[in-house]
Amino acid sequence: MTGLDLRRPGDPGSTLTLAHGRGRLLRVLSTTLVASWFLLPFAPLALWAFANQWSFPSTLPTEWGFDGLSSAIAQGALPALGTSLLLSLVVAALATPLGALAARALTFGTVPWPRTVSIALLAPIALPPFAAVLGLNVLLLRAHIPPEAGLVLVLVVMAVPYTTFTMRVAYAAHDIHYEEEARTLGASRWNILWRVHIPLVAPALSRAAFLAFLVGWSDYVVTVVVGGGEVVTLPLVTASMAAGIGNDSAVAILSLSAIVPPLALLALAGFAGRRPRTGAVQKTPNVGERP
């Protein structure tokens, strides 16, 4: 600046900045490519959703409109959407704390034979759901478990492996000393749980809950076999519509509306995942001050 030929990394013209710029370009380019790789399949879906007519040789719909939307609503898309949301939220609400409990016990060594227990918890992912569910359904029926309860039970069991392993990663990096310190300072168990423990694992909890939500949200086989027609979710309506001819636009609307809630939750989880990290650490020191 003052005549001295001193260059700092990051100054314009620095070789470091140059490399950084090139890397940035590459990063932006690869991100765009990956994003379009994911987004491209949605292009025909988005077109079909508002195509009243679209025959083979035309590259674009020949007639635009909302026939698909009204047909999807007439086929019961709205109540099915509500049922799907409720089911998935219930599954997430049950599977997330269960997974967290299992993961904490496994990480801090309070479980005998942790390896065997881990494998047992992972087993539901390894089993082909159709075969497992058909056999399981007879068992549930024999035990006179109502279809709704049976459905939630099976889906929670299918979601627990995901929540457990997400939470295990979180607990592996979890510093239990924060909790010990809070206890030394006289915090109650309840206070430690709510003001130290949960804020510290909140990002992982939201990730786990999101995965559990997806298990309920995307399920078809368990809902149709165990649900016994009592629970008509969005995948059921979509699949039965897709089995017919001329329903493409309604199926596109149904598929698109199936993408929106998980995306919204993902954004919410990303948002929630950022906040507590700073909040928790700042709050920790004054935990003990409160009775």
Partner: peptide
């Protein structure tokens, strides 16, 4: 109850019968 295939309904009935649920089928 919309199904993709009528055999879904039949499978449900057969599972219920196999489980001994003879009078409260869905």
């Amino acid at each position: 109850v919309p199904v993709t295939d009528t055999s879904d309904a039949l499978n449900r009935v057969l599972s219920e019968l196999q489980a001994g649920r003879t009078d409260d089928g869905t």
